[in-house]
């Protein structure tokens, strides 16, 4: 039994917590871009926390269920409709064989998560069911969903329990997003003015924002003119190739900063001026093109405190949704 894809949406993929431990050999973690909303969706339907879900970007799919199931929709505001009737977000609901699930236009945020009791049961590759699109593996046949796909559902789905995420544990969508950054390793290559511009500019997210990276415009960041070292490209923003952390920010040509996200390449020759702290990567994932972002510098202690705060929030979420 399965779910049939009637319309695939724009870029709907199967994701779980991710594929850890292979980035050093060039395979990125992939996995849900907004891990908090992903976790909430699984907890709502009584799944294992790492069950695979659908990640729907900007435009939702239309799905036909061929079996009864429990479903929950979290993340970006794209209201689900069951046989045309609007259903709540952040709340579990039952679907029957033959039911159709569709979505309204996106209102706020960028990525919506759809968990189904039992999880989407595609093969586990290198420890994960997540799609890595550039590598054409994982997910459903190594690609985004297409019309007519039959998505297998795991057999051990839970019985329906009505659960809802309390309002204060849902994600917020501020008009101006503040993203915390730890500077380094190459921020010293920026001019003083370039560094100042990075923090004083209100950046606009361009439409070039996908699972690999998020590109912003708004200002020019000058790099110090120097004699490029052997092995580095000729532009002042080039370095001798180095490993790219997830969340690292590069500024090719000093023009448009790019935040690398969970499907990023693992290394290259652009100077990383800073790295988004792990606690703020979910917020990056939920930004829309043309939305406004400011970057705030934090130190390691502040970054670790933010991570702890995020972990406490996750603990409260688990507690609120415990059966």
């Amino acid at each position: 039994m399965a779910i049939k894809v009637i319309k695939p949406g724009l870029a709907t993929s199967i994701q779980d917590r991710g594929r850890w431990g292979y980035y050093h050999v060039g395979i990125p973690p992939s996995g849900a871009m907004d891990q908090y909303s992903f976790l909430a969706a699984n907890l709502l339907v009584g799944n294992d926390e790492n069950a695979a879900v659908l990640e729907c970007t900007y435009l939702g799919p239309e799905l036909e269920f061929q079996q009864n199931a429990v479903v929950a929709v979290t993340g970006a505001e794209m209201s689900p409709r069951l046989n045309g009737q609007e259903m709540p977000l952040w709340t579990s609901f039952e679907v029957r064989a033959g039911d159709r699930l569709s979505f309204d236009f996106l209102k706020r945020g960028a990525r919506t998560y759809v968990a189904v009791s039992g999880g989407i049961d595609v093969p586990i590759i290198l420890g994960s069911r997540s799609l890595y699109g550039l590598g054409a593996f994982g997910g459903f046949e190594g690609r985004n969903l297409q019309e007519g796909d039959l998505l297998p559902i795991g057999a051990n789905g839970s019985a329906f329990v009505e659960r809802s995420v309390p309002q204060d544990l849902r994600i917020a969508f501020p008009e101006l997003i503040e993203i915390r950054v730890m500077m380094g390793l190459y921020d010293y290559l920026l001019t003083e003015e370039g560094l100042k511009n990075f923090f004083e500019t209100t950046w606009t997210l361009t439409p070039v924002a996908d699972r690999i990276g998020f590109r912003y415009k708004g200002s020019e960041l000058r790099f110090i003119k120097r004699k490029q070292p052997f092995g580095a490209g000729s532009d002042p923003s080039n370095i001798v190739d180095a490993a790219y952390p997830i969340g690292s920010i590069q500024v090719p040509g000093g023009l448009e900063p790019i935040i690398l996200h969970r499907d990023a390449v693992s290394g290259g020759g652009y100077a990383m001026i800073g790295t988004v702290i792990s606690a703020d990567m979910d917020a990056v994932a939920q930004t829309q093109p043309n939305s406004k972002t400011r970057f705030i510098a934090v130190d390691l202690d502040q970054a670790l405190a933010a991570r702890q705060e995020r972990n406490q929030r996750i603990a409260r979420l688990r507690e609120a949704l415990a059966a």
Partner: peptide, 9 residues
């Protein structure tokens, strides 16, 4: 006619 997506027109 409504835009189904956010982006550039």
């Amino acid at each position: 006619i409504l835009s189904p997506l956010p982006g550039t027109f």
